[in-house]
Design a protein around this nucleic acid. Structure first.
Lengths: 235, 235
DNA sequence: CCATCTTATTGAACATGTTCGTCGGACGGC
DNA sequence: GCCGTCCGACGAACATGTTCAATAAGATGG
C-alpha cells in the first residue's frame, strides 16, 4: 500500500507498534497465505508484513516448520467433524472425517510436510483427535489400540499428502508419470525381480485418493484385528 | 586433500577435470556424509568437494531432496533382505525386513524426510520392494492388494522415521517429552474432549519402535482383511 | 580444415532461514 | 521518583538453495 516506505528511519523509534504476539503472527501468516499463496509465507515476507525484522519472529516461533504447522492448525478449522456424532455405520463416518482432513492437506501439500516434523497441537487438531477417538470407541476398539490407531491414521493421511508436495507440473497431466520409479519398474529384470515385474504398473497406478481410502480401511480393519501385546491374532 | 586450493585461478582453465557424473556426485556425497555428517552435505559443500560450483550439480540432481534420496538409496544396501528367502512364518520375516529398513532410516531421520517427497528408485530400493512383494505373495495376499500394501508399509516406516527428524535434544532424555502435544493433552477439557482426556498420556506414550512394530502388524492384518473394491469385508 | 551448433559448465546474483550481539524500554525495588 | 535489571526487538551478518545468462569445449557438417 505505502508507495515505497515513506521514511526509512529506524523502526526502533516508531511510536506505537501493536507489539508482536504469537496469535498476531499466525493470524497475519494465514492472511498472507490466502492472499499471496503459501510459498510467499516466508519469515522475511511475514516480518515485512508485520513491519519488523525476521529475527523478531523467532521469539515466538521456533522455525519455519513450526510456523507452517501453526497455519495448518488454523486451517484444520475447516475439517468437517459433524460426522463424528451423526448416525450410521461408524466406519463410513470415520472415513468421512479422515477424508475431510485430507481435503485440507491436499490443498496445501507442503503444509503436510511441515506437519510431519512439527505436529500441530492446537484446539482444531485436538478436536480432530477427539472425533477420531470417539468413532473408534463407538466401533468397539479397545482404548490401548485406539490411542495408537489415531496416530497411524493421521500419519498415513499426512504423509500421503506430503508425498504430493513435489508434484507440481500443473499443466501437463501426462508429465506426472515421468517419475523415475515408473521408468525403473518398467525396465526391471523379470528374473531378478519376478514379483515386481509381474505387478508392473499396478505398483504405481491408482488415483491417490482411491488409494488413500483403501489405506484407511486397511488401518481400521487391521486395528480391529491386532491387539497390542501379541503381534498377530493367529500367531 | 589439497592443502588449501593451490591456485585460486579460474576453474574454467584447469586442464583435465574428471568430468562430473551422477554416480560420482552421489558417491562423493555418501563419503562426505560418512566423514562429516549429513548436515554438512549441502550443495555448496559438495560442489566444493568436487572442485566446482553449486550450479554444476543441478545438471545431474534436481534439488537437495533428490540428492538426499540418492544417498538413502545407497544406504539401503545395508538392509538385510536375507529373511525374504528364509524359512519360518512369513509375517515374522516380513516384519524383520521392514525393521531392517527402519534401522537405516532411524539413523538418519532427515533422509527419510527427503525420501517422502523424492522417493528413491535405485536398485537397492527395488530389491526391497521385491522382497516385500515376495513375502506378501507367500502369505497369499492377492496381487492387487499387495501392490498397494507395499506402498503403505514403506510409507508408514518412512514417515515414522521422518517424524523424528526434529527431535534432537541429544543429552536430556526427559526433554523430549516437552512436546507441545503432551502439554496440550494434559490440559484438555474432560467435558469437551472425553475420549482424549480418558486416554491421556497413552496417546503419546510407547517407545517409537514398539509402536512401529504394532503398525506393521496392523497393516499386514488389515491388508489380508481388506479387498480392493469393497471398503470393508463386512460392510 | 573451418564454420556452426549443441551442451555441459560456470560465475554471479537473488531470496531464503537462522543466529548473534546489542539496544532500548518496561518493570520492580528502594 | 530514581535507578538497575531483565527481556523483547532489532540490525547485520552468514550459510544455504536455486536460477540465469554467458562461455568454453566438443561434435557435426561442409
Amino acid at each position: 500500500m505505502s508507495p515505497r516506505t515513506p521514511a526509512p528511519r529506524s523502526r526502533r523509534e516508531r511510536p506505537a507498534k501493536p507489539a508482536l504476539t504469537y496469535e498476531g503472527i499466525v493470524h497475519t501468516a494465514v492472511r498472507l497465505m490466502q492472499t499471496e499463496g503459501l510459498q510467499r509465507v516466508t519469515m522475511r515476507r511475514l516480518a515485512q508484513e508485520l513491519d519488523t525484522g525476521p529475527a523478531s519472529l523467532y521469539v515466538y516461533v521456533a522455525n519455519t516448520a513450526e510456523l507452517h504447522a501453526a497455519i495448518l492448525e488454523k486451517l484444520l478449522g475447516a475439517v468437517d467433524l459433524t460426522q463424528a456424532t451423526a448416525a450410521g455405520d461408524w466406519r463410513r463416518r470415520l472415513v468421512a472425517v479422515l477424508d475431510s482432513y485430507t481435503w485440507v492437506l491436499f490443498e496445501q501439500p507442503s503444509l503436510a510436510q511441515s506437519a510431519l516434523v512439527a505436529r500441530p497441537s492446537g484446539p482444531n487438531y485436538l478436536a480432530l483427535v477427539e472425533a477420531i477417538l470417539a468413532l473408534l470407541h463407538e466401533g468397539g476398539v479397545p482404548d490401548e489400540q485406539a490411542a495408537w490407531a489415531v496416530d497411524v491414521l493421521l500419519l498415513v493421511a499426512t504423509a500421503t499428502a506430503a508425498e504430493h508436495s513435489a508434484r507440481r507440473s500443473a499443466d501437463d497431466d501426462a508429465a506426472d508419470e515421468l517419475s523415475y520409479l515408473t521408468a525403473a519398474i518398467a525396465g526391471v529384470d523379470p528374473v531378478k525381480h519376478p514379483r515386481t515385474s509381474a505387478l508392473g504398473t499396478d505398483l504405481v497406478s491408482g488415483a491417490p485418493r482411491e488409494r488413500l481410502t483403501w489405506f484407511f480401511h486397511v488401518l481400521i480393519n487391521g486395528t480391529l484385528a491386532t491387539p497390542r501385546r501379541a503381534g498377530s491374532p493367529d500367531a
